[in-house]
Design a protein around this nucleic acid. Structure first.
Lengths: 112, 112
DNA sequence: CTCTTATGCATAAGAGTTTTAGGTATATAT
DNA sequence: ATATATACCTAAAACTCTTATGCATAAGAG
């Protein structure tokens, strides 16, 4: 139950998509958001999340902004312009991949 | 175009699903079949396929049967009983994962 | 007042899966 | 003769994630 393993490669797209919706988010918030909207199905581990955020930042897809709340530090990430474009690309790639997988899994539905 | 990278973890499920449909297949046949039904979208590399087949066999999910056709050797794989059960499990896991991803990607469709 | 849980960041070692790049061999088409 | 298709295989590298840590503050439970 819950906590199904991530299919490797989808984490970045998940992050980008959430940032596209929420404008700006911090790491911990992302883990909670994913847990919430998937009803606990998917748990993003911090060991995967933080390196992924750093990489997306290094690639110029995210901007960072530090903020102190209740004496605790938060690193808010938001999409750059390049990041917004790239998000659209990766989303359509993922959607295409999902369609492809459905074709394989459900060969009867030749609705593609 | 085409040749999108595999989301890691889905290859085994693809193999199992194809064998569930076709009863018995050999490696090269699997690569061609995937290319055909995905219209060239997905190309299974042999470097991934053959080790995966060997592993599934070692796990007792597949049985092998050698056959010589036109002086060329083919290794036909088919699901064991255990493999059939496991195929059903992995398919529902993958379907659940796809539903989860759709929830994230398409938050408007709260049809889940 | 101390201990646990929640919040918030981070990195390193290991495991797992795939790509890339080779290798062998036969059959068929150019 | 040479290239392409068929048919198998493996090893090294790349990539992504899990697991296991570490640090620090805030809030709640006992």
């Amino acid at each position: 139950m819950g906590n199904s393993k991530l299919y490797k490669g989808s984490l970045n797209t998940i992050i980008l998509k959430l940032l596209e919706e929420s404008d700006k988010m911090y790491g911990y918030e992302i883990t909670q958001k994913v847990k919430e909207i998937t009803k606990g199905e998917l748990n993003i581990t911090e060991g995967a999340l933080y390196p992924a955020l750093h990489k997306l930042e290094a690639e110029g897809l995210l901007d960072v902004e530090m903020q102190k709340v209740d004496n605790r530090l938060r690193k808010y990430y938001k999409l750059t312009e390049k990041g917004t474009t790239e998000t659209a690309n990766r989303l359509s790639e993922l959607e295409e991949y999902i369609r492809t997988m459905q074709t394989i899994i459900n060969p009867n539905w030749s609705i593609n």
